[in-house]
């Protein structure tokens, strides 16, 4: 789906192979959502080094803080998620306190399969109740799958009790039309493989509310004419050209390969996602984290008809 449709959801989960820029895109989508007037929160999950610190200027706490009027950020860590989860599930404050004060109980909750993931997802669900738009920087592809897949296994694992009840609610939310997935890829074979593989696994497990969106980061479309490419090839194959001359030929070949890779990646992704990926040129996503988010946000904002000057925070 287009950027506009993606942001029509209440919950946007962004995933991708490590190093593709998924955090940058998640943050940029949150900025654009806020610019559209939606009360938006950008969240990271259980990360030791929250990127939001480098992007928005301060390490985000568990409870969302306002960056601008409409744009909030938070970091969903285990301690906070556990408290929020227990507070929601246990009828008495006294019991929550008793659980939190008991080391043994904490250890078991930490180690028991599924509890962590359900607590994280539960917190996301809670934020969806409080905000117009929740944008989550999900773990990298395979880990994002495992996290969402817990909702399925939780129904199997927990035959009764509060976890089961919450898992059923969450499964409904995460599988609904309001929940959307976005993948971030770059034009490299292994990255595209992993993106497609994760997409297919998620589709098979019925994890999509709507059709997911794919962003192709660092995309450069082919720009050499056939004649130019022919000449480049002749120069490349001429072994008499060496030293500095060869360096120029190599530079041209390097860019042409990147461009070809974009075209190939885009075609493969289109085959799986049913529409071409949203392409963003390398220049947009360059620089330090803050610049990169601003650059991508400006690029994506244009697609929903918002000009740079109307973006908050930038």
């Amino acid at each position: 789906m287009s950027v506009r449709e993606l942001l029509d959801g209440r919950l946007v989960m962004v995933t991708g192979k490590g190093g593709t820029g998924k955090t940058t895109y998640a943050a940029a989508l949150a900025v654009v959502g806020a610019a559209q007037g939606q009360r938006t929160v950008f969240c990271e999950i259980d990360t030791q080094r929250p990127s939001a610190a480098a992007i928005f200027g301060e390490p985000p706490p568990f409870e969302p803080v306002a960056i601008t009027d409409k744009l909030h950020v938070c970091n969903i860590h285990w301690d906070g998620a556990l408290v929020a989860y227990l507070t929601r599930m246990l009828p008495l404050r006294r019991l929550v306190k008793a659980v939190l004060e008991n080391q043994v109980v904490q250890r078991v909750l930490d180690a028991a399969p599924g509890t962590r993931e359900v607590a994280f997802l539960s917190r996301i669900g809670q934020l969806v109740e409080q905000y117009d738009l929740v944008v989550v920087d999900m773990p990298a592809s395979g880990h994002a799958f495992s996290m969402l897949d817990i909702l399925r296994s939780a129904l199997d694992l927990f035959q009764s009790g509060p976890v089961r009840k919450r898992a059923i609610e969450l499964k409904e939310l995460f599988g609904s039309e309001a929940a959307r997935l976005a993948f971030v890829a770059i034009p490299e074979e292994m990255v595209v493989n992993e993106t497609i593989e994760t997409h297919d696994r998620m589709q098979k497990a019925d994890m999509f509310g709507g059709n997911p969106t794919c962003f192709l980061n660092r995309a450069t479309l082919p720009s050499l004419s056939d004649d130019e490419r022919t000449l480049l090839k002749r120069l490349w194959e001429n072994e008499a050209i060496d030293g500095i001359g060869r360096e120029y030929v190599r530079a041209g070949l390097w860019e042409d390969r990147l461009e070809q890779a974009t075209a190939e990646s885009s075609e493969r992704l289109e085959g799986v996602f049913g529409e071409p990926p949203v392409m963003v040129p390398p220049a947009a996503a360059g620089g330090v984290p803050r610049q990169a988010v601003a650059g991508v946000a400006v690029h994506l904002a244009r697609q929903v008809g918002i000009a740079r000057r109307d973006l908050p925070w930038i």
Partner: peptide, 22 residues
């Protein structure tokens, strides 16, 4: 005593059946 409290609290959070499985 510790085991007893632990069991009760965990049972509240995760459900008794799961706890037995676990």
């Amino acid at each position: 005593g510790a085991g007893g409290v632990v069991f009760k609290l965990l049972g509240l959070v995760m459900g008794a059946e799961f706890l037995n499985d676990f």
